[in-house]
Nucleic acid binder design. Structure first.
Lengths: 199, 199
DNA sequence: CACATAAGCGGAGGTGCCTCCGTTTATTAC
DNA sequence: GTAATAAACGGAGGCACCTCCGCTTATGTG
């Protein structure tokens, strides 16, 4: 079956689809630069649409935030595929984790509102965290399979190791610290692997 | 020692105290009638002060809500004393529980925002719930002591029995249902008490 | 192509938020 | 009582929210 929400999902008209996408894309940028309380009118303005159009597509701020969030997670997961194709699998894994750090970075500061949104809307959390760990699993498994990282770890171990990134305090050094955590982790993962790159 | 917050608590000027009280009182009414998102400008207007004055006393909506909430709890607890003096102790207990129902009634619908406020500000919760159960304990103990309700229960039992009031769904019948719960509970408490009123 | 029409657009307008600062007033000192 | 002054007042102004509805445009049909 193609889809079947209560009374929805008919294909949008071309202009509507265009505007909707433009809004989501601009919103991502504006939220990143001004925080989650950014002016919706600014978003509409920058996207080149009227404020009415914004509200038609996204009746509340939360709707917009949710869509932006889902798109970003989507992008993160797509990146896993692309990296996997263009790079040796251990390098792909490392690059992806660095990108993951960048991604988390933009989410800091949005904390309160985003947390409320996520606790309010539980499918949002399960959907997205499921996708992320699936993307990670794919990268880790590939790297283990071709011997560029050691064989006695799996995706859950790596995810667990990354969890320090969430919990670390919100200082100016956070980003650097997190990048170092990722390289450190990679060194550990390469250690003793059959085909690990030797620096 | 009288008080000693970091750098505060000097006695307010007479007009300031007046305005502050008026605002809190009006706010209680307006929140009750329009919900927690009521217009702050309306509150200022009805209290007969400028909007600037409202914001000086209560820099954010949450500040105002918190103060209103604390006052209401205060009132509920004061009522316990008054009822205890004017009525036989079992009657006082019953009347107080009915008033408790009214109090909870005004809080329904405010749920989300109030819940956020309470989880954000944990002393608010411990302060108020402590006071409420203390008031209830006083009433129950008195009624047990003079034999108008049975002796094998204590305040915690009663509080536990009342907890159904919170959890019940938010229907139109809620209030009636809750009132009946209270009478039912009172019948049970009077049953077999040495000096219970016999209908 | 031309037309009909449903889908979508946009922005004016009314309301609320919050800040800032010139004016008013309670209080203290004399 | 009067004067000095710190405290408090109030509302204009600027910005954001969100709705409503007259106008525009994409799309299907002949």
């Amino acid at each position: 079956m193609p889809e079947n929400n209560a009374a929805a999902d008919k294909p949008l008209r071309a202009d509507a689809r265009r505007n909707r996408d433009a809004l989501a894309e601009v919103a991502a940028a504006v939220f990143a630069e001004r925080g989650i309380d950014a002016s919706l009118e600014e978003i509409a303005r920058r996207a080149g649409v009227g404020i009415g159009t914004l509200y038609r597509h996204f009746p509340t701020r939360e709707h917009l935030v949710e869509v932006v969030y889902r798109r970003e997670v989507e992008g993160l997961c797509t990146a896993a595929d692309e990296l996997a194709q263009k790079h040796p699998s251990d390098v792909a894994l490392e690059m992806w984790m660095q990108r993951f750090v960048d991604y988390i970075a933009t989410k800091r500061g949005l904390s309160t509102s985003l947390r409320i949104l996520i606790t309010t809307n539980s499918t949002l959390f399960s959907d997205t965290s499921g996708k992320v760990s699936q993307a990670l699993r794919q990268l880790v498994d590939a790297a283990v399979a071709d011997g560029t990282i050691r064989g006695d770890v799996d995706a859950s171990d790596v995810l667990h190791a990354l969890s320090g990134i969430y919990s670390a305090p919100d200082t100016s050094e956070w980003r650097d610290r997190s990048r170092r955590l990722v390289s450190l982790l990679m060194d550990g993962l390469r250690f003793g692997a059959p085909k690990a790159a030797r620096p």
